[in-house]
Computed example of a mutant assay.
Amino acid sequence: MRTQVAIIGAGPAGLLLSHLLERRGIDAVVLESRDRAYCEQRQRAGMLEQGTVDVLRACGAGARLDREGLTHHGLELRFGGRGHRIPLSELTGGKTVTIYAQTEIVKDLIALAPEGRIRFGAEVVEVDASTPRVTYRENGRLHTLDCDLIAGCDGFHGVSRAAVPNATVHEREYPYAWLGVLADVPPSTEELIYCHHERGFALHSLRSPEVSRLYLQVSPTDELAAWPDERIWAELRTRLATGDGWTLKDGPIREKAITPMRSFVTEPMRHERLFLAGDAAHIVPPTGAKGLNLAVSDVTALAAAIADGGLDGYSESRLRQVWRAEHFSYWMTTLLHTDHSADAFARRLQLSHLDYVVSSTAAATTLAENYVGFAYDGR
């Protein structure tokens, strides 16, 4: 087989890249080791920046997003038992964010793909970045896919990242993890609540008007068995409590998981004819909601570079935006999470910083601009 671009991984990055290339008349084949059902059921949260929504609409994947996505014009920072609204749209010239699950984006993009573009159950076993060529196993047999270039969109544990020799790796582990739950209960809020509490961070998000997504800061060593549903709701009520009568709705929890938090960047994001995108190149802690949006920015830039002959500048340009997102995610994480090893001085500094963010228009604008996403020009 031969194609112009071999794409490894059928997550949002790989699928979207294939559609962006198609719109430019460039052939691509997507190789995915899992089956279609797994890809369409892999649960991930989804907070979409304005730019991400615009890209999905432009490639024809915006119909259901526009019907079912929940557009937000602000968010709330909550600490000291009080809520403080950050008016995102007002501070950023009208930009919004949209709640729409990553799982649904994958379904929409798969449904748009023509027959044969995505090869599910095709496990890539070797990447030759110089030829270039991809070797994959399908139905127990080895096959090769010759191409002009390779896009590695197969995540942190995929083969693409390992195929970049002598890469420089930057990494940070955090002493926090998130216990995330998906609950069959209408949300208790119309906009996301980011809450700092002495017992730990909490986040009240939502999946739909009928389903809530909530998170608790826990220890990375915690196990799910230590968190029965009753304890989760009790802890959420404690951390999210306010003095104005606000109440938290509870209900059946359908899913729960504990996710450690880390920052990771590998550079460069290119080796010969292999180009990395998304989690294959970088991971951010989820506090800033940048992971999916960075992946979309990567493949949008990569598609343009492939079509316009700008591949030599791809890695340098993308890494500038990646590091901006890494810093914002680090800042949000350290601003809102509770370091139980910190002394009273450090805790008072953290509260002072939170108070500054909600009382200063300049500080709130910095948060808002980063949260909704920059129109990045690559310079």
Rank of each mutant, 00 (worst) to 15 (best):
L240V: 10
L319G: 04
S89G: 15
V164P: 00
D66C: 11
M269S: 09
G309Y: 04
R137V: 10
E190D: 10
E76D: 14
C195R: 00
G80Y: 02
L149Q: 04
L274N: 01
C147D: 05
A325L: 10
E171R: 15
S352E: 14
E191P: 04
Y376E: 09
A303Q: 00
S359I: 05
L349P: 08
E104Y: 12
A277P: 03
D128T: 11
R231W: 08
E22K: 07
L274H: 00
R44S: 13
V169F: 11
T103K: 07
V55L: 02
A122C: 07
E198M: 11
A281H: 03
V218L: 03
E369V: 11
S205E: 11
P252T: 06
I283G: 03
S352T: 12
R273S: 12
R273M: 08
G373T: 05
A58R: 14
V127T: 05
E173M: 13
A303I: 02
E49C: 05
V53T: 05
V29N: 01
P87V: 02
L349G: 11
S315H: 03
G62F: 02
D244W: 10
V296I: 14
A177G: 01
S212A: 14
Q350D: 13
A37D: 13
P186W: 13
E123L: 09
Y376H: 09
L292M: 12
L142T: 13
T242I: 06
A368K: 01
M1S: 10
P87N: 04
M47W: 12
P268E: 06
Q50S: 15
L192E: 14
E104G: 08
A10I: 03
S329N: 04
H19T: 06
N139G: 13
Q41I: 07
L77V: 03
A257I: 10
D146S: 15
R34S: 12
P268M: 06
E316T: 11
H196V: 09
L224S: 04
G46T: 03
V169T: 14
I258L: 04
G62E: 01
E316Q: 12
G243Q: 09
A364M: 07
Q4V: 09
Y314A: 01
G14E: 00
V30D: 02
V53S: 00
Q321E: 10
R213W: 08
R85C: 08
A177N: 01
G243N: 10
S219V: 00
L319S: 06
T52Y: 04
M261V: 12
G310E: 04
M47F: 15
E316C: 14
A101T: 09
C59F: 15
G245D: 09
I118R: 02
V97A: 07
E326I: 12
H204E: 15
A177R: 02
H84S: 04
F328Q: 00
T71K: 12
D229L: 06
D343Q: 07
G80V: 05
A167C: 08
V372I: 06
I253Y: 01
A101E: 09
